[in-house]
């Protein structure tokens, strides 16, 4: 319990630092946002007026504090290009990303661990060799290319699954429709992380299986299944869980590509569009929301690890 509180407290400076980075990165960028909004033919007068309107004439520290204060009140500003509040747009898009990334994270955790344990148990057997090779291929494949291949195969040629969007345009909606649209992008997104988790699980299991307590458990006459799946796996999980936390970041980030390929209406695609149109407030809002949620997810991963490993007492 004390650990939870402590860990929660440690999140605050990280979140603050995160906002500083986001703000300073985007507030000092070379281009002038007002010029970007008003286009190349704007008069200097108009530019200055808009700058004042946006508060860009104040010193940076003050700008930051104002911005932070607004954020804390849920005001992320307005998107120039979409002409709607940033927060509304981001939350709408982010929920779509969460569905995609959540499904992918679930898939990669499940498959990654299953494959990794299988490989470790059958070390140097044929299934191990094939699966480790598949894992190398998995971590090496560009997901944007894999997505295109998947569309070619399953949507264009086989016509099994839809190629784009989250719901069918006509008569769409409902969970079944969502799942049909989700399958290809979620699988595509999970491939890399599956490879990473599988490789890590394999080596973590092998590492643990060499340790003395495994030999000691065998010496006590404990059955092999229990030794591997209870004793060894439990100890290996301690190293696997933080990596799942890191993979959540990869999946959230990798969603950018997959969303672009599958035209998934998520926050990643939104960010890419916002960067192209130099919609700074939208970029800031999107990055802050996604990064903050990632920090919170990692907090959960830490707490899970703490629940598992009584030795962590900091």
């Amino acid at each position: 319990m004390r650990y939870c509180l402590k860990r929660l407290m440690a999140v605050v400076p990280v979140l603050l630092g995160l906002t500083v980075i986001v703000f300073s990165m985007l507030a000092f960028l070379p281009g002038d946002p007002a010029t970007a909004i008003l286009g190349p033919y704007a008069t200097p007068d108009n530019v200055e007026r808009l700058n004042r309107q946006l508060g860009l004439d104040k010193p940076p520290a003050q700008q930051y504090l104002i911005w932070l204060g607004n954020i804390l009140q849920g005001d992320f500003g307005r998107s120039y290009s979409l002409n709607r509040p940033v927060l509304d747009e981001v939350l709408e898009r982010f929920s779509a990303t969460l569905v995609l990334a959540g499904a992918a994270l679930l898939l990669c955790t499940l498959w990654g661990i299953l494959i990794g344990v299988r490989c470790a148990v059958a070390q140097y057997g044929w299934s191990d060799r094939l699966l480790t090779l598949a894992a190398v291929a998995g971590i090496s494949v560009p997901s944007f290319w894999l997505g295109l291949l998947a569309i070619l195969a399953f949507s264009v040629h086989l016509r099994w699954l839809p190629a784009s969007g989250m719901f069918a345009v006509y008569g769409g909606g409902g969970a079944a429709d969502l799942v049909r649209h989700l399958i290809l992008p979620a699988l595509t997104l999970s491939v890399v992380a599956t490879g990473v988790i599988a490789r890590l699980t394999r080596s973590a299991m092998l590492e643990v299986l060499r340790q003395d307590f495994v030999c000691a458990a065998r010496a006590r006459g404990i059955g092999e299944r229990r030794v591997i799946y209870r004793h060894a796996f439990k100890a290996a999980l301690v190293t696997i869980i933080p990596v799942i936390g890191v993979q959540a970041g990869f999946v959230l980030g990798g969603a950018v590509y997959v969303e672009t390929v599958f035209q998934w209406p998520g926050v990643g695609r939104m960010l890419v569009q916002a960067i192209s149109t130099r919609d700074i407030q939208l970029v800031q809002g999107g990055v802050v929301v996604v990064a903050a949620s990632y920090v919170l997810f990692n907090l959960l991963a830490d707490l899970a690890q703490h629940a598992l490993d009584p030795k962590i007492k900091t």
């Binding site: 400076p13 990280v14 979140l15 630092g17 995160l18 980075i21 986001v22 990165m25 985007l26 000092f28 960028l29 070379p30 281009g31 959540a248 970041g249 990869f250 959230l252 980030g253 990798g254 950018v256 590509y257 960010l271 890419v272 916002a274 960067i275 192209s276 700074i280 970029v283 990055v287 996604v290 990064a291 990632y294 920090v295 990692n298």
Partner: peptide
């Protein structure tokens, strides 16, 4: 390491996106 932790608080590619957004494509 606190500085490094800050960088790690961003999901991997998102940080790259943010940097590109700041520096320009």
């Amino acid at each position: 390491m606190r500085g490094i932790d800050m960088l790690m608080a961003f999901p991997y590619i998102l940080l790259a996106l943010a940097i590109v957004a700041a520096l320009g494509p």
